[in-house]
């Protein structure tokens, strides 16, 4: 990735955070640690939550009105951490205001809206990036470095599993409402679908997925997803995303990539130390780079130098949405769904 350019004579970029939920804390911490950007305000529909977050951040301005925040002097960009169904209108508003955007994944929950958002930022001449944070974690980069270095030759089969237990609130959580989240494939599945597609350096052509309401039969989303992706070059990927495993303390990352010249593995027990205590066995994560900070830098790089190669392109973000939509559709039909079908009508 390119280092940030020297076009930096205006001081740190002013960034507002929109949506003061738990993921906003991670972005806020990355902003605090950056010398290239500063937190310029908090926006949340809930005034109490906005003011509390603003106070916690050292007394930055807060508002419940996005337009007001975007109009404030010194605000150049936004990081949006709101529920998925609000992504499209908020993104459009930010594009119209001529600001840059780091949007929590998924970019939007439909392919046409994702394409429309990208076109709006193209027209505005500002940067939009979807926060597929796993691309910026050490483990994902280690795998990518190895593949890029030719360690396995041409990758032909990849497995990625991110398995855990229930972490969501109760039945009222918007994540559990497919109309609001787009379903679990859009909410979390896109992390894995994006990551393997990046690793494999190939274009997905179809998805065959199985979904399971494991925690409760009444769930309207699939807390366990098993997604097969077929690639244009003949490779296959199997991605498992789970928030339905038990025990709920399960914390599992598993990577296997087989290539023409070798096999790469990040075994499930290979990325931490095992701690055995009276309350059970758990994994002690190794010290690692802050993926949110690395991601913030990548976004700031893209803003500073529009011509530089981007770590995560708008097309990547649209593709991730398309893969998520294809996954949900495949589960519904019990059949593979092509990317062509879900991209139909939005291709130029």
């Amino acid at each position: 990735m390119a280092r940030h350019s020297v076009i930096d004579d205006t001081g740190p970029l002013g960034v507002v955070i929109v949506g003061a939920g738990f993921i906003a804390d991670h972005h806020g911490a990355a902003l605090r640690a950056s010398s290239r950007a500063r937190l310029a305000g908090i926006v949340d529909v809930d005034a109490g939550r906005a003011s509390a977050a603003a106070t916690a951040a050292g007394g930055v301005p807060w508002t419940t009105d996005l337009a007001e925040a975007l109009a404030r002097p010194g605000v150049d960009a936004a990081i949006v951490c709101t529920p998925n169904m609000t992504h499209e209108p908020i993104a459009q508003q930010i594009a119209a205001a001529g600001k840059h955007l780091l949007m929590e994944k998924p970019l939007t929950i439909t392919v046409p809206s994702a394409r429309a958002v990208v076109e709006a930022f193209d027209a505005a001449g500002t940067v939009v990036m979807a926060a597929h944070t796993h691309r910026f974690y050490d483990y994902a980069r280690a795998v990518d470095d190895a593949i890029a270095g030719g360690a396995v030759g041409r990758p032909v089969f990849a497995r990625l599993a991110l398995l855990g237990g229930w972490i969501w609130p109760d039945w009222r959580a918007w994540v559990l409402d497919p109309a609001k989240s787009g379903g679990h494939a859009l909410h979390n599945g896109v992390h894995l679908l994006d990551l393997v597609s990046w690793w494999l350096r190939d274009e997905p052509v179809s998805v065959y997925a199985r979904g399971r309401a494991q925690t409760a039969a009444e769930l309207r989303i699939y807390d366990y997803l098993e997604m097969h992706v077929e690639y244009a070059g003949g490779a296959d990927a199997v991605c498992e995303m789970s928030r339905g495993h038990r025990p709920s303390t399960l914390d599992r990352r598993d990577v296997l990539v087989a290539g023409t010249d070798g096999v790469l593995q990040l075994p499930a027990d290979g990325w931490g130390s095992t701690v055995v205590t009276e309350s059970g066995t758990s994994l002690l994560h190794p010290q690692a780079a802050n993926g949110f900070a690395v991601q913030l830098d990548a976004w700031l790089d893209a803003i500073a130098d529009r011509a530089a190669e981007r770590a995560m392109t708008p097309a990547d973000a649209v593709r991730a949405v398309a893969l998520g939509v294809a996954t949900e559709l495949s589960i519904e039909r019990g059949e593979p769904v092509t990317l062509d079908e879900v991209m139909e009508g939005v291709r130029s």
């Binding site: 038990r246 599992r252 296997l256």
Partner: peptide, 13 residues
């Protein structure tokens, strides 16, 4: 080179 199985169940892995 690789020979493994993971069984996920209602109460454990």
């Amino acid at each position: 080179a690789v020979h493994r199985y993971r069984v996920s169940g209602s109460h454990g892995v």
